[in-house]
Design a protein around this nucleic acid. Structure first.
Lengths: 154, 154
DNA sequence: TTTAGTGCAAAGTTTTTGCACGGTA
DNA sequence: TACCGTGCAAAAACTTTGCACTAAA
């Protein structure tokens, strides 16, 4: 993942002004292992900046995503952000349902999924959800209670 | 995909009452090749049921999803629904960005993605986005204009 | 000094909830 | 008849926009 400095340098070099708030944002994302909701960010930032408003958080998240320093992922329960991967090569993620830490998967299934009948592939998504070794204890019992933790089959 | 009758039978056998509106809903989803937003459904249903309210649409979508006759997919631009696949075996989807028709992919990458460091896999998502042969003409030019049609890399 | 960033207020979207009436089983 | 499904109204949750002031460069 990108470091605080990498995030700030990118923003600066793209002409954005480096405010205190943006420095804190950069540090927050550089040091957060998992995904953060806009609300998470708002609450964390609010501890330091008393008059903080939600729209500024949204604006900065949007700007940082457009710049490529943050990446947005849409979960079943809403939109979340994290620092962009610093790895150059294409890869996918395993995402822990408890701590939301991500682990890279170098393997890409697209090489193997033969596109049927002239389907022109533009993009693809491959994500694995589960519990990392630190969170294995939180894994639900074998018998599922219903639709919980169902992050989209098929 | 499930047929109108299969949808209605399932709902009925689960104790739901079969109203006119639900019959129409069942037919709509059984005959729609692509994904529908709640708004799409509301607008279509509104043509027949003048006093229709949005909350009823949401309630029925929710109920039908809980029952398993509909499946919900979260796109970058919002939540969408379609009739549940009738195929029994596990599979994935290619989704056309223009007409939203889906094509099954029997290949499942999970067999090949070796889970690293004791990661306990619960679920996975593999989706391919692009243009089907009928919509190839709508595919954007080679040089991308920016973040459009980026349905989440990695 | 110039212009981008911020807080504030308000509005726009999307989704949910409570209640009373009407229709299904 | 009993109770679920519906419309209506309102609220809740989430996100965006306009404006004036402040601060970065």
């Amino acid at each position: 993942m990108l470091s605080t400095e990498q995030i700030i340098n990118t923003m600066s070099s793209q002409g954005l002004r480096i405010t205190d708030q943006r420095k804190t944002l950069a540090r927050l994302f550089a040091e957060s292992p998992g995904y953060l909701t806009p609300k998470d960010v708002y609450e964390y930032m609010g501890k330091t900046y008393s008059g903080l408003s939600f729209d500024t958080v949204y604006r900065n998240l949007r700007v940082m995503q457009d710049l490529g320093v943050l990446e947005q992922v849409i979960f079943e329960d809403g939109v979340k952000f994290r620092a962009h991967c610093s790895e150059d090569h294409h890869h996918h993620h395993m995402i822990c349902l408890k701590c939301q830490k991500t682990y890279p998967i170098v393997f890409c299934p697209m090489q193997l999924a033969d596109a049927p009948e002239q389907f022109q592939v533009v993009d693809h998504k491959f994500e694995v959800f589960g519990y990392c070794k630190d969170c294995a204890e939180y894994a639900p019992a074998k018998v599922s209670t219903g639709h919980s933790h169902d992050h989209g089959k098929h």
